[in-house]
Computed example of a mutant assay.
Amino acid sequence: MTRPPTAAQRRVLDSADPVTGRLRGGTETQLAALVKRGLAFRHPRPPHDHFLTPAGHRIRETADVPAVPAERAPAAESGVFAARIGGEEEPPAGGPARLREVRGAWEGLVELRRMTNPDGATDRPCGWERTHLVQAAALALEAAGHPPAGPDGTGGYRVRATPQPEAVAVHRPDAEGLRACAATLEQGGWQVSEHTDPRTRARYLLASPRRT
């Protein structure tokens, strides 16, 4: 089991701005430890402030949650938070706690866009999303309130990798729901096109992060 944050680290996490994730306290040693654990990142431009990662936001909002192991940084790809891609055999529990987790992860990701896109744009995906396509697209859908598919693959969306280097497939059994998923992804900075599976004749989406 991964060690939880120390009391001092927890105080630093709690000092973060709830919207931007900017850390307003902590020594250089404490901040470096949070970066190493994937809970914060140091902005590359002056004044080089530190900000929470999506996992850092999640830790801040949830007490007694295991921290991210250093060898699995950056935290956005860690097991601390994972967006639902649909069809999981053991999906995470729902309810208000899950809604807070998803909201915090999405707010953290938007902030990550602002801090890492060269022009500070928040309306298009950042580098992390381009290397974690399935999780990024699933987070956009879950944060917008779309229901993920259950363990039997029905009832909502499923996001899956494709052979294409920068595209994911989004499946949903109902046409209306599929169109709603397309609208959400487009609003989140993705390019979306609709296709038909040649074998099953089912409609699905191909989504790629927009670059401009």
Rank of each mutant, 00 (worst) to 15 (best):
P151H: 09
A121F: 04
A93R: 13
R72D: 03
R60N: 04
F81L: 05
E142R: 07
G94T: 01
P96M: 01
P44V: 09
A149V: 15
P46F: 10
R42P: 05
P46R: 15
A93N: 01
E129A: 15
A138V: 13
W106I: 02
A55R: 03
V65Y: 07
V110W: 01
G145C: 13
A83W: 01
H48Y: 14
V110A: 10
R58P: 02
E90C: 00
G94D: 10
R113C: 02
R124C: 06
A55T: 11
A93G: 11
P91M: 06
T122R: 15
A55P: 02
Q135G: 08
T62R: 10
A82R: 13
A140G: 10
G95S: 09
E89R: 08
T53L: 07
V110Y: 04
I85L: 05
T122I: 12
R113Q: 00
P54D: 13
V102Y: 05
L39I: 11
A67C: 03
G145M: 12
E77N: 01
Q135F: 12
E107M: 07
P46Q: 11
G108S: 03
P74Y: 00
S78C: 03
W106M: 14
D152R: 15
D64Q: 09
T116L: 14
L39N: 03
H48E: 12
F51C: 08
R130M: 15
A93C: 01
T116F: 10
G145H: 13
R113S: 01
P74V: 00
E111A: 14
E61K: 02
L109F: 06
G86M: 04
A140F: 05
R72V: 00
H57W: 04
L39W: 08
W128T: 04
H132A: 15
L112N: 06
R113I: 03
A140H: 11
G87T: 00
S78P: 01
E88H: 02
G127M: 07
H132V: 09
A55I: 02
G86T: 09
W106E: 14
G145T: 14
G56V: 09
T116K: 09
E129V: 05
P66S: 03
A136T: 13
R58F: 15
Q135H: 14
D123C: 10
E111F: 04
P47V: 07
R42L: 12
P151M: 13
P66W: 01
H48W: 14
V102E: 06
P96Y: 01
W128A: 08
H50K: 07
A93D: 10
V80W: 02
H146I: 10
E101R: 06
P92K: 05
E77K: 08
A70P: 02
G120H: 05
E61S: 09
G150Y: 05
T116Q: 09
D152V: 13
V110G: 04
A76I: 01
A83K: 02
F81A: 03
R84W: 05
G108F: 06
P125M: 11
G150H: 07
V110L: 15
P118I: 08
A138R: 05
G86A: 02
E88M: 04
Q135V: 07
D152E: 15
P69G: 04
R124K: 11
R113T: 00
L141Y: 13
W106Q: 12
